[in-house]
Write a protein that binds this DNA or RNA. Structure first.
Lengths: 127, 127
DNA sequence: GTAGGAGCTGGAGTGCACTCCAGGTCAACC
DNA sequence: GGTTGACCTGGAGTGCACTCCAGCTCCTAC
């Protein structure tokens, strides 16, 4: 199965411009072209794009995704390093979730006690 | 208790430049000044700064924090609107956590099955 | 055979949230 | 009274991740 850039965009959740941008900066390999010179994405290309969006969604900077992509390009010899990167990234995602959850608690508290809290703010007698 | 800008920075986790920047864009009220014209932050100022960092950490855009700050400035009459904002923000934080957790699962899976997965990638027989 | 629409390229522009800088003031210590 | 260090101001610069644009090509449908 192959996909036009519009289809690839729709299925990956990235914009057409972003797809071309990712290609330009070496985050994705240039896909095949059809007879008219247009990009033709394979299922493998799509799989990689979807995985990239996971990394991006979890806050991995593009420079690191690029590093990962380059290692991947160099084949099985770099598998250990890549696994290590995912390991570290997983840790940072877990930290991020914990951080959000702790902020969420503050938010919960603030919403629950909104009247009192804002009252003390207004009166200027915050503890 | 009052704090110099350096102390306020340390306690809020923001940089000195960011404190001045937040003041400039109307996110925090200009704090008092000491005899030499230097900023002198109160405990209330600090409380607000810390709360702002929670909003920022949870991804609230500055433009929205500013809106919140302006409502707060207008006093008790806007309490309902502010509470509503926090409500909606809480929902978006929950969504974000859910999203991260779902990506985390993909990451877990990928790490666990790393050898096989990368092998299939290399062979180009991804399902 | 031409009008329309999708896609192409290289390069410029955007929005966000800071971050840095030059040139100056002020209080305190030696 | 000179030097040091923290702080001041207005304004310029940065890094990131896109996003948009002009001017072009190529297929398809009428």
């Amino acid at each position: 199965m192959t996909y036009s850039i519009a289809q690839a965009a729709e299925r990956s959740g990235l914009s057409i411009d972003t797809l071309r941008y990712y290609e330009r900066i070496g985050l994705v390999d240039p896909p095949a072209r059809d007879s008219g010179g247009r990009r033709s994405y394979s299922d493998d290309d799509l799989g990689w794009l979807v995985f990239l969006t996971r990394l991006r969604t979890t806050g991995m900077p593009i420079r690191m995704m690029r590093e990962y992509a380059q290692l991947r390009h160099r084949g099985a010899a770099t598998a250990g390093r890549r696994k290590q990167m995912l390991f570290e990234h997983r840790a940072s995602v877990r930290e991020r979730i914990a951080e959000l959850q702790s902020c969420l608690e503050v938010l919960e508290y603030k919403i629950t006690h909104y009247e009192q809290i804002e009252h003390t703010f207004i009166e200027g007698v915050t503890a």
